[in-house]
């Protein structure tokens, strides 16, 4: 599985972007409540992210499940590392772990006050 073209494509995506959200739909029009919830959390933390709409690409939709060993969408990657799906992201947001993880990896919220 590791050298299939699709897993290479996913690897490239999560290497090129600090924060990648594999989701259903896009951040403006999420097609699923769980995807929408994660978009909202990243928005509230003002974290810029790359989104990948799995509904547009059946190969990625199935491929990401294999790649992460995780059967559901959405899936959040930070600096190439799988962080979790909606339940985990929500929980980590609520107890502050998500901001800690992000700042620990050098990803800071857009500094709105400085603008």
């Amino acid at each position: 599985m590791s050298d299939s073209p699709i897993s290479e494509k996913i690897s490239a995506e999560i290497t090129a972007n600090d924060v990648v959200l594999f989701m259903k739909g896009n951040p403006v029009f999420p097609q699923c409540g769980f995807s929408a919830a994660v978009v909202e959390i990243l928005g509230r933390l003002s974290i810029p992210f790359k989104s990948v709409d799995v509904l547009e690409d059946m190969e990625i939709r199935e491929g990401i499940k294999q790649f992460s060993n995780w059967p559901t969408i959405p899936q959040l990657y930070v600096k190439g590392e799988f962080v979790g799906g909606c339940d985990i992201i929500k929980e980590m947001f609520e107890n502050g772990e998500l901001s800690e993880l992000l700042s620990g990896k050098g990803i800071d919220a857009k500094n709105e006050t400085a603008a």
């Binding site: 995780w70 059967p71 559901t72 799988f82 962080v83 979790g84 339940d87 985990i88 929980e91 980590m92």
Partner: peptide
Amino acid sequence: SRVERQRRVYAALADELT
């Protein structure tokens, strides 16, 4: 970890999830 816990659950319910 949270991820490992959920993987255990997903593994147990693999048939139902597909």
